[in-house]
Design a protein around this nucleic acid. Structure first.
Lengths: 140, 140
DNA sequence: CGTCTAATTGAAATACTGTTGCAATTAGAT
DNA sequence: ATCTAATTGCAACAGTATTTCAATTAGACG
């Protein structure tokens, strides 16, 4: 089992939440994903036998967001949060035509910052930098 | 009439689109707004007499995006685009608890950049930087 | 290991968000 | 003033998200 799932299960236990199949299934899928997953994406990825009710997926994700195991990012997507105690940092490129979303890492770490007058009154838990435009395929 | 609405009407005319009441109404509202407006926000802002069909609002916004008069940003919001020919640049602070969204300007202009390996294949039309967390009110 | 209970899940109903086809209306060209 | 293509509104529909409540289950305890 990957570190992300292991750590997430620990955090669930430490906070008195049960380790259920739906929660484990969602954790496994999010850990494998390299792009944000919507509740519907998750539903599609599950085989017939392991199928989950959409409502359950919504609730599992809501809990994970509360525990800072995943971050909710732009356009209804959810991504894993490697270090639950740290601020999330997500950078995406989105094609306005086909909707394809890709995450990218900045070469020398993340340089984004918040103006000090806002930082005073606001507790930051994550940030999303989304670049929109037209991808190579759709340009043709 | 404010410069934004004036310029938008010119662009509509130049591209052979009619200057209709729904289009003027939406332009006026977007020009006044300091935060992104969703189609539903716009609907609520219109009085009974000037009410628009939601479908019309969606279609008007779709056209405006195509003509680069407004930008679609994270969470279903639309904002005016001051200079239609330039890349859009939108920075927001969003409270995860109450949903309040505020736009902020960076002190020394926008320093955001796209990694060169992505820029090669992707035509950027706008970007959104969204900082999420908990606002002062919700912390209490 | 079996029992018990609170937590969790699934089903049904509902609300919100967004889209499509078509008939009625209207801007603006003539 | 008339005409026509563009635009709007309506109706139906599809997708997304939330709430309530009964059925199920994880895991605590004996």
């Amino acid at each position: 089992m990957k570190a992300f799932v292991k750590q997430a299960i620990q955090i669930l236990e430490q906070n008195g939440y049960k380790i259920t199949n739906p929660r484990k299934q969602v954790l496994e899928l999010i850990q494998k994903a390299s792009s944000p997953l919507s509740p519907y994406d998750l539903q599609k990825m599950l085989s017939k036998e392991e199928a989950l009710n959409p409502v359950t997926i919504y609730r599992v994700l809501e809990l994970f967001v509360k525990l800072h195991l995943v971050h909710k990012v732009a356009r209804g997507g959810f991504v894993k949060c490697s270090i639950p105690t740290e601020e999330g940092c997500h950078h995406f490129v989105v094609c306005n035509s086909c909707g394809t979303t890709k995450e990218f890492a900045e070469d020398q770490g993340c340089h984004f910052h918040l103006p000090t007058n806002i930082a005073k009154d606001f507790t930051v838990t994550s940030h999303t930098y989304e670049i929109a435009g037209i991808c190579k395929k759709c340009k043709k």
